[in-house]
């Protein structure tokens, strides 16, 4: 009998560990994706993403800890598309959808709507074996959307999708989340999830390294400042510190870390340089990329 949970966390993992023989794939993970939110689950190969998803779906049982799934009135508790699309290749797309409709208890009318949503309406009569990998992926996504799941797990959903289909999928994921589903997307393509994901969970060697808002993971913008000549640059650095700006000498230039909006700090840098008669040759905003932030997090974990 599923445990009745708070409505905003339909699935809760409590101290979950999964071992396969001597290998620990997931270590003491306590985690709960939030309803109405898109969470990007990222990590290196072998970090434990797929294992974590399989534990959430009940396909594999945790060695320690527990998974609680809320019973949601009228909605399917959990749906997933894990690894390769698991479709009956000898049957048509419509038949595959119909089989899963019966399995999930969804209404007959949903098939047409879901097929249009996933852009497979025009291939309903085709056998799955005749479809490209990209279309099979779309059909698998359509299947996973039947009966409005409370939690939707998507494992590398953009594999084999063309750029247009990827864009469509991202907007679909957003719409599904806005409808109240907790969507978890496992991906290697960090950049793809920018603008789509609300939250980010970083897994490394089976542990959660980061679990929070997507924007917070990237880190704040800094300013890179250089004057005409090394001596002038050093003088400027000292003047900025007097002005209360966190400025440090880094690799031939100044890195100024704003404690206010970056543009305001930039104005103050410019004004300070102008007052001192220092000519600036560079004043630029530096925002770490998602990949840089990810690699920094992984490197930090390794050390």
């Amino acid at each position: 009998m599923p445990v009745m949970l708070k409505s905003h966390t339909p699935v809760v993992l409590s101290n979950v560990t999964k071992r396969f023989g001597s290998t620990t794939a997931v270590r003491s993970v306590s985690w709960a994706p939030v309803r109405g939110q898109v969470t990007a689950l990222v990590g290196l190969n072998g970090a434990g993403k797929s294992t974590l998803m399989r534990v959430m779906t009940g396909l594999i049982k945790p060695t320690e800890g527990s998974v609680s799934v809320a019973a949601d009135e009228g909605r399917r508790p959990l749906s997933a598309m894990i690894e390769n699309p698991a479709l009956f290749t000898g049957l048509t797309v419509r038949r595959n959808l119909e089989i899963h409709r019966v399995l999930t208890g969804a209404d007959r009318a949903e098939i047409g709507a879901i097929a249009e949503l996933a852009q497979v309406g025009h291939v309903l009569r085709r056998r799955v074996s005749t479809l490209s990998q990209g279309y099979r992926q779309r059909v698998a996504i359509a299947v996973s959307l039947l009966r409005s799941p409370a939690v939707l797990l998507l494992d590398e959903p953009t594999n084999a999708l063309d750029p247009e289909a990827t864009m469509h999928l991202r907007s679909l994921i957003r719409r599904v989340a806005d409808g109240g589903t907790a969507v978890v997307v496992s991906t290697h393509q960090l950049r793809e999830m920018e603008g789509t994901a609300d939250a980010l969970t970083v897994l490394h060697e089976g542990r959660v390294l980061y679990d929070g808002p997507f924007e917070s993971f990237v880190g704040s913008t800094t300013l890179r400042v250089r004057a005409l000549g090394a001596e002038e640059t050093r003088r400027l650095a000292e003047l900025l510190q007097v002005e209360g700006i966190d400025a440090e000498w880094v690799a031939g230039g100044i890195r100024a870390t704003p404690n206010e909006h970056a543009d305001q700090t930039a104005r103050r840098v410019f004004t300070t340089a102008a007052r001192a008669g220092i000519d600036l040759v560079e004043l630029s905003h530096l925002t770490p990329t998602l990949e840089e932030a990810f690699h920094a997090a992984i490197s930090g974990a390794r050390s």
Binding site: G58, L59, R76, P77, S79, A80, A86
Partner: peptide
Amino acid sequence: STGTIRSWLISAP
């Protein structure tokens, strides 16, 4: 072997 068993299990309590 094809993984279609997953669909059955994910959909069932």
